[in-house]
Structures are given as structure tokens and as C-alpha cells.
């Protein structure tokens, strides 16, 4: 079965789309199929961005009226399947809203969903790859039943590259009546300001874990990150403990990062964490325990106390500035 039609959910963000959305568009157009993007709150800038990255059509669900996107967007996609026919595949970014859309759509279409996809290959159908056990093994899978297959794809599985295409033609794709399911409404939005580059985009990521000993010591992570013009990350353990907000979390349930260098400070290397950072170009680890699993994947390891090494590193970096 050659692929002829692919739909990609593209999440609007600051006048364009989230990076993961652009990654999916880029990968989608590599199959030589017709690519359509599905978004909400569409406008000329979004049509241009969708076209630039390879979509010929932009289905616009329209203004969501403050509703969480999961229900209305899934409802709109289900309506499209009914009106124009099912595509071969529906690709959705693995994000908070992307997962909502995928779950809702799966139940509406009565089609299964493959999540945590990190590669998608056309071998006459679509074969997927999924990391398991902290990325130490890779599961290869595929759908066996009737389409469309719903694929939820992790950030940074592919590179985002402009294809130089012209603006996509916009087609309205209303959600229709969603009844009681659409009752979740955003009453207010809070943005937690962070300085410096975004965690997912920074060339340098400095992350802290339990080995810091106490919440106050996270300041060492932030200062080191700042001196390296990088972003500060965290293990799930210290996010759960309330030391830092969830938006700092790197790992399976947090963000996936692939910086030039990842500096893991006082992080033992739980599989949960490794899957979010093992794609980094270089990994530096500082940990008291010489047998910590993080050292098995670190290019450069220091067996020592982060509370001694980091202040010294900060001083050394300041001396160079």
C-alpha cells in the first residue's frame, strides 16, 4: 500500500506551530504523499507556515472558544473522516493537548493508537519504533486493522526543515456539537517566566536531581546553566518533591532534549530520565555514586559531590567570562 494521504495535527504557537508539529510536517512530506495539516484558530500566517513545511491543505477547526483542544479537534477530525474519507495515517505530536486529541479521536473512530513513536518508516505500510525500558530496547510495531492509524510521535524524532512551499489552502473543519464532553473550559492562563533559552531548544542543558540534597541547591543548577547560556532541567524525583516546576522535567513524562551537551548533576539515571536525554550529543555526569547508571551513558563522568564540583565549576566559568 503506497501512502497517498497523511493528516498531521499541528498545534498553533506564537503565530506558527510548535517545533514538534513542524518536525511531523517535515517527516510527513518525505513519504511523497499528500500532506494536510489540521489546526485551530487558523489565519494567514498559519496557512503560510503549514505550506512552507509541506502541507497543501490546512483544515481549520476555528476558534475553540476557550475549550481545551482535545474534544473539539478530535470531533472535527472524526467529521472530516466521515465527509472526505480516512487518510492512511494521522500523526499527532506527543504533547499535553496532542495526547488529549489522540485519546478522544481513538475512542470516536474506534481505532487504536500507537504512542511514544520515535520513528515512522514506509515499508509498504507504516512501521513504527518505540523506545522501552529507558531506551535500552526498541519495539517495532504496526497496525493490523482497518485505518486510519493514529500515531502519537515524540518530540525531536525528526528534524524540522522548511520545504519552501507556498501557503496551504484553508478549509474550514468545524467540530460540530460535542455535547457534555466539551465542558472543559480554560478560565485563565498563567505563564511561568523563565530566563534564557527554552529547555527543548538550548544547546546546553544542565539538570539537577536528588543528589543536590535540598531544594535551595537547585540555584547551583540555574547559575551553571546561565553561565553556559543553557537551560536548567530536572529529574522527575525533584519535580515530584516540589523543588522545581514540572516544566523543567526531562524524561519519559517530561521533555525530550537533544542538546550539544547535557550535564546531569546528582542524577542517578533512572530509565524514566534516560529516555528523555540519551539522544544528547555529549553527556557529562557528576554523581557521588561511581556505580550510578548515568555513568554507563556519560561521555565524561566526574565521581564526586555536586555541591563541591558545581561551585568550583561556577567559579571557573565566571573567571573566564
Amino acid at each position: 500500500m503506497a501512502l497517498s494521504n497523511i493528516w498531521i495535527v499541528t498545534e498553533p504557537s506564537n503565530g506558527s506551530y510548535t517545533t514538534t508539529s513542524l518536525e511531523l510536517l517535515t517527516h510527513g512530506r518525505s513519504f511523497g504523499a499528500t500532506v494536510s495539516a489540521i489546526t485551530w484558530g487558523g489565519n494567514a500566517a498559519l496557512a503560510a507556515a503549514a505550506g512552507e513545511y509541506g502541507a497543501t491543505t490546512l483544515y481549520d477547526v476555528g476558534d475553540l472558544g476557550g475549550a481545551l483542544p482535545g474534544v473539539p479537534v478530535a470531533s472535527a477530525i472524526a467529521a472530516l473522516v466521515a465527509s472526505v474519507g480516512a487518510p492512511d495515517a494521522i500523526l499527532i505530536p506527543n504533547s499535553y493537548d496532542g495526547r488529549d486529541i489522540a485519546g478522544r479521536l481513538s475512542a470516536r473512530l474506534d481505532r487504536p493508537v500507537l504512542t511514544n513513536v520515535t520513528d515512522l518508516v514506509d515499508d509498504g505500510g507504516l512501521a513504527t519504533e518505540h523506545p522501552i525500558f529507558g531506551g535500552s530496547q526498541t519495539v517495532k510495531a504496526r497496525f493490523t486493522g482497518e485505518g486510519p492509524g493514529i500515531y502519537v510521535i515524540r518530540a525531536k524524532s525528526f528534524a524540522a526543515e522548511s520545504g519552501g512551499g507556498t501557503a496551504a489552502s484553508v478549509v474550514a473543519a468545524p467540530s460540530g456539537d460535542v455535547g457534555a464532553t466539551g465542558g472543559a473550559i480554560i478560565a485563565a492562563t498563567h505563564v511561568e517566566e523563565r530566563v534564557g533559552p527554552k529547555l527543548e531548544e538550548a544547546a546546553v542543558v544542565v539538570s539537577g536531581g536528588r543528589g543536590l540534597g535540598e531544594a535551595e541547591k537547585y540555584a547551583l543548577i540555574e547559575e551553571t546553566a546561565k553561565l553556559l547560556n543553557g537551560a536548567a532541567g530536572a529529574s522527575r524525583a525533584i519535580v515530584d518533591a516540589g523543588w522545581v516546576p514540572y516544566s523543567h522535567q526531562v524524561g519519559q513524562t517530561g521533555k525530550t532534549v537533544k542538546p550539544t551537551v547535557y550535564i546531569a548533576c546528582g542524577i542517578s539515571g533512572a530509565t524514566q530520565h534516560m529516555v528523555g536525554m540519551k539522544g544528547s550529543k555529549n553527556i557529562v555526569a557528576i554523581n557521588k555514586d561511581p556505580d550510578a547508571p548515568i555513568f554507563q551513558i556519560a561521555d565524561f563522568g566526574i565521581v564526586g559531590d555536586v555541591n563541591k564540583v558545581l561551585p568550583a565549576l561556577i567559579a571557573a566559568l565566571k573567571a573566564r567570562a
Partner: peptide, 20 residues
Amino acid sequence: RQVITDVVTAESRSAGEKYI
């Protein structure tokens, strides 16, 4: 309606230099 076709060992990173 989905099948695992294979499970393979992922390309592993090897440990590099380590200093006390």
C-alpha cells in the same frame, strides 16, 4: 489491531572517561 513485529536492542551509548 496492532502488532509488535520485533524488539531489538537499541544502539547503546558507551561509557566514556570517568574521573574521581
